Amino acid sequence: MKCNEKFKIKTLPYMIESVQLLLQSKPQIQLLLSNTTLTLSRQNVFSLLSLMYFELTIQQSVQNFKFPQYFNFSTYYMQGSQLEKLKCLINYFNQCVEYPEYFNLPDIVYKRVQLIDIPNWINSQIPLSGFKFEKQKNEDHLNCGIVDFSDRFFGGKVAAGRGCAQEEVLLLINPEAIIATLFTSQLGDKESLIIQGILQFNEYRGYEDSFTCIPIKYINKGQTLIAIDALYFATKPQGYQFTQEAILRELNKSYSGFKGSQQQVISTGKWGCGIYGGDKQLKTLIQWISFSQACPDGNIIFNGLDDKAYHDLGKRLELCKKRYQTVGNIVKEILNSSQKNILDKLC
């Protein structure tokens, strides 16, 4: 396999050396608990990813904490999109060795945010924020927060023998984020994971089985990754997502990420839709409302590629903004009239 030959020539000796140095130094890398921050050097990140590559990591076993099932890259030698996953990692390792100045770049910050002060959603007088709809992908925008449609176990199936959906793609083009799977347990209903300082090492085409890696020289887009896991409605009773319980959960979840990231601009899209079964109209409203509460003077960008029906929601949101003006006003209306195609009722 050509990619493996190229990989061994350029990178393997340095990876082995970095792993040896890491094991000798025995760094204290703590579990990322609620409302804690972990700061790692680029060298440590490189070494940890090397450990995962060599299958020298083991699944965490800590009482009262649940960790991802997948924690190394042994499945990447399978055919199809898994080989493309491997190429993404190979390019990361090669880039780090080819451009040694990489290791002098600022550290990467991993932050777990647990929402303590829950907003009084119904009575909030915070004004509704700005927004826009774009025909792009979440990760196309510069200097902003990028929403990762996360699994409750951060990383989803990025290290598994299957799966290459939105979260997996984001982590493959930004491999420095992958190591958070080693020290991040299952996220709670009011928790999010924020990763600051990541670089992009790959472009791509396709999705799931058609995913194809396009290696590039690493670039700094000034992006902060915001991992928030939506509810999986496919296993819930029909109509559950329109209940007050579900809506408030999603408001609190997304608010923890938006508030915790401290970003004035957020790039997102159809969070929790697709196989999760989320209603596009409702999920768009929820993200807009929670972002408004977190950053009323900012802008949230909804990316829909070629989905015309999704872009048409922008006109409806403009009407909602004029009619309801504040977070509390629109939340009251949503909770009183939750239903499919909710914008038909609101606007």
Rank of each mutant, 00 (worst) to 15 (best):
P175V: 11
E176V: 10
A177L: 12
I178N: 08
I179D: 07
I179E: 12
A180N: 04
A180H: 05
A180T: 06
A180Y: 00
T181S: 15
L182P: 08
T184H: 07
S185P: 12
S185L: 12
L187E: 04
G188D: 10
K190E: 14
K190N: 14
S192Q: 01
I195H: 02
G197H: 02
G197S: 10
I198Y: 04
E203N: 14
E203R: 12
E203Q: 15
R205V: 10
R205C: 10
Y207V: 13
Y207E: 08
E208P: 00
D209C: 08
S210C: 02
S210H: 01
S210A: 08
T212G: 12
I216S: 08
K217W: 01
K217G: 10
K217Q: 14
N220A: 03
K221C: 12
G222R: 05
L225D: 01
I226V: 14
D229Q: 02
A230F: 04
Y232W: 11
A234D: 15
K236E: 13
G239Y: 01
T243W: 03
E245P: 01
A246I: 00
R249E: 09
E250D: 13
E250M: 13
N252R: 06
K253D: 05
Y255T: 04
G257L: 04
F258I: 02
K259D: 13
Q262V: 11
Q262C: 15
Q263N: 13
Q264M: 13
Q264W: 03
V265M: 11
S267I: 02
S267Y: 00
K270Q: 05
K270H: 02
K270M: 12
W271Q: 12
W271N: 12
W271K: 08
G272A: 01
I275E: 09
Y276D: 12
Y276N: 09
Y276S: 11
Q281N: 05
L282R: 04
T284G: 12
I286C: 01
I286M: 04
Q287M: 10
Q287F: 07
I289P: 05
I289D: 03
S290N: 08
S292L: 12
Q293T: 11
